[in-house]
């Protein structure tokens, strides 16, 4: 491992940051999305509009937020509103990207962050719950999910659907009443970047992280993935990305 110039968190952050476009509205959750948004602002997307659920809009992410309501989420911001305004803004279709994590994910991008176990009244592990995740996954146009890749996390059936992916497959979101044209867009993992097939909404391999093989991805996924003929490779973090990440974004090393 020593020959690696970057660690797995740094790779996840850099790949996620590259998905954040300038002048786009991005709903940011705790952890890696915060670092990715800050990195994106300092690289290619100076006018990335970060949106935090308790009211922060358009912050300049100079210091890393430690909470989705802390004052860094509206540092030199464009607005300091409240949760209802933010969630209603997403419901009205103003928010393009939503970044989320989760404990478990299935082939349709459904996410669990509520319980481990099959009995809600007596869970094996009580997880933190939906928080804003369900709202983000329901109302943002494109949800981007960031997770460590592993067979216990990528499973055929999640213990609890906290946040909607494509539910039971094509058409299911719309049938449930969720706004049309929304849903999971990318899954960024420690091994690869995944997308979803247009027709079936099955999860699909798009690009491998440096040094990772298709076999490794398959071995670490608990359900069948669509493996297309042409697969990209994600470029490794550049020297510049790593410098900004280490020296500016997270110099206190809360995450990396």
């Amino acid at each position: 491992m020593n020959e690696l110039r970057y660690n797995p968190s740094e790779l996840l952050i850099c790949i996620s940051a590259r998905l954040m476009a300038d002048n786009a509205t991005c709903f940011i959750g705790t952890g890696i999305p915060m670092l990715a948004a800050s990195l994106a602002q300092k690289m290619h997307a100076p006018n990335l509009i970060s949106i935090f659920e308790f009211g922060g809009v358009g912050a300049q992410l100079e210091k890393l937020p430690l909470a989705v309501g802390d004052m860094r989420t509206f540092n030199r911001g464009l607005a300091a509103a409240g949760i209802c305004d933010i969630m209603e803004t997403a419901t009205r279709g103003f928010v393009e990207y939503g970044f989320l994590g989760g404990a478990q994910i299935d082939m349709y991008g459904n996410l669990n962050s509520t319980i481990i176990g099959d009995d809600h009244a007596h869970p094996k592990v009580r997880l933190p719950g939906s928080g804003g995740a369900n709202d983000v996954g329901s109302t943002c146009w494109r949800t981007i999910i960031i997770m460590q890749h592993g067979k216990k996390r990528f499973i055929p059936k999640v213990d609890f659907i906290t946040t909607p992916g494509y539910l039971s497959g094509a058409g299911a979101r719309e049938a449930a009443g969720l706004p049309p044209g929304t849903g999971p867009y990318r899954v960024v993992t420690s091994l690869c970047t995944l997308g979803f097939d247009k027709e079936t909404k099955w999860m699909k391999l798009l690009a491998l992280n440096p040094g990772v093989t298709v076999e490794q991805v398959v071995e670490n996924t608990g359900f069948e993935l669509i493996i297309p003929e042409a697969i990209d490779t994600n470029p490794p973090p550049s020297t510049e990305e790593l410098r900004i990440l280490r020296e500016e974004v997270d110099k206190d090393r809360y995450y990396i």
Partner: peptide, 8 residues
């Protein structure tokens, strides 16, 4: 328009 279709 939230929570639709989920265990939540």
């Amino acid at each position: 328009r939230v929570m639709l279709g989920t265990d939540t």
